[in-house]
Amino acid sequence: MAGWLGRLKAGLARSSARLSDDLAAIFTGKKLDAEALQELEDTLIAADLGPATAARLAKAVGRERFEKDTGADEAREALAGEIAKILEPVARKLEIDGARKPHVILVVGVNGTGKTTTVGKLAKQLSEEGRSVMLCAGDTFRAAAIDQLKIWGERAGAPVVAGAPGANPAGLVYDALARARTEGADVLLVDTAGRLHNKANLMAELEKIIRVMRKLDADAPHSTLLVLDATTGQNAHAQVELFAKAAPVSGLVVTKLDGSAKGGVIVALAERFAIPVVAVGVGEAIDDLRPFAARDFARSLLGLDP
């Protein structure tokens, strides 16, 4: 347990280094006056929380701390508390229903967010939990995406159902589900092509994939994960909104949190959509997919010990 916490912290430490430096600069030896409050708000904006959320959080902290001799640590604690409060309800694990054979997990998102990598990492973790996992290479569009997933499949020891490049993804998903059912797989992980949420035809294709899999299992997909890139800014709002319209998005995965991007938009997303954040990606290795821990995340963002 301490192992992954440590790794998560290490991953997040880099993203929070700047934020905490900024905050330290604001609060050390300084009272929380209007100017310091504005700087605090700016720091949150620079972390991609968005202007509205940043203003509201800064105000909340200000209301409590104004005119008091608030030190750096105290203000940070308060802010971490505010952020954690928002995130706690959405920090939930990916639940696999053991009664389903298979439990279908559909992975969707815009291009380049890390869907295939996430599928690979998830496959490894789920098979380590003792489940039989099957992969479906539903990205038949991007060149060599099928090969990429096959390599992940080998690493995770999971069979990959794949078609020819350019094949109809809905048909392929149908075949994969049929095979997973006959072979009694516990989990079927379906990778899909990256698609921009504002492209009507591509979103219709996604809807079709779901429609077709429901011909075999009316409740499928049992989980739909939207993969978000931590470097994404306010457009994440539109991504969640439109993907949730086309698919029953039940969880978010936030990738690339090991970079300098802070992924603060999650805070605003949690408030607006309340969709669970089931995992975060903190590196390229197969084990770098971690549960999302609200309190640790909020505290790490502010450079505080868990």
Partner: peptide, 15 residues
């Protein structure tokens, strides 16, 4: 760079 990039784009480009 991705047109959807957030605030960190500035740090990435600088680096």
């Amino acid at each position: 760079a991705d047109a959807m990039s957030g605030q960190d784009a500035v740090n990435v480009a600088k680096a």
